[in-house]
Design a protein around this nucleic acid. Structure first.
Length: 169
DNA sequence: AATTAGGCTTCGG
DNA sequence: TCCGAAGCCTAAT
């Protein structure tokens, strides 16, 4: 009864083959690995935003990828709880399992969490800020940073069809 | 192959 | 603080 079960493989010719082979698995694994590394690099008692983690991983603009990686993560040692939204709030829905756990994990490290928000450092925007605890100087405001998140469109309607506006915050 | 729904997002207004 | 729009990525149609 095992002769059939163990030997089939996905081969060229099978229509699923092209799909499987076209996936840039290596690149994705690499990105995921870097993201996890960036998260592990956040010291206990400190926090960082999704976007910041992405930046440190060399993936500017892929904040949501960070969220996705965390969602799939199975490594119990990964300090996922140190990753917050850019405004310093916990990303999970208030009252959810994850929300509570993240809050308690952070508090266990001495981080002040009030109403689902971290007080003190609003999810360090930069390495300097994380190391020094405070921005060295007012960031002026010039920050054309946002590669892929938020286009900073100051006017006019989209020339193309309105992209599906996702869930309201 | 193209499109859609959704999510641990983000920025600006 | 809340809301809308834009960009990212995956699984399901």
């Amino acid at each position: 009864m095992d002769s059939k079960l163990r030997t089939w493989r996905l081969l060229p010719g099978d229509d699923r083959y092209a799909t499987a082979m076209s996936k840039p698995t290596a690149a994705k694994d690499d990105a995921a690995a870097r993201i996890r590394a960036a998260i592990r690099a956040i010291p206990a008692g400190e926090v960082a935003g999704y976007g910041e983690v992405a930046r440190r991983a060399g993936l500017p603009g892929r904040a949501r990828l960070v969220a996705r990686i965390l969602g799939q993560n199975e490594d119990p040692d990964l300090p996922w709880h140190r990753v917050l939204r850019s405004d310093g709030r916990i990303a999970f829905p208030e009252g959810s399992k994850g929300f509570r756990e993240q809050g308690q994990r952070l508090r266990a490290e001495g981080v002040r969490v009030e109403a689902g928000r971290v007080r003190g450092q609003r999810a360090a925007a930069t390495l300097d800020e994380q190391m020094w605890g405070v921005p060295m100087a007012p960031p002026a405001k010039a920050k054309p940073r946002r590669a892929r998140t938020s286009p900073a469109k100051h006017s006019a309607a989209p020339s193309k069809a309105p992209a599906r506006a996702k869930r309201p915050g």
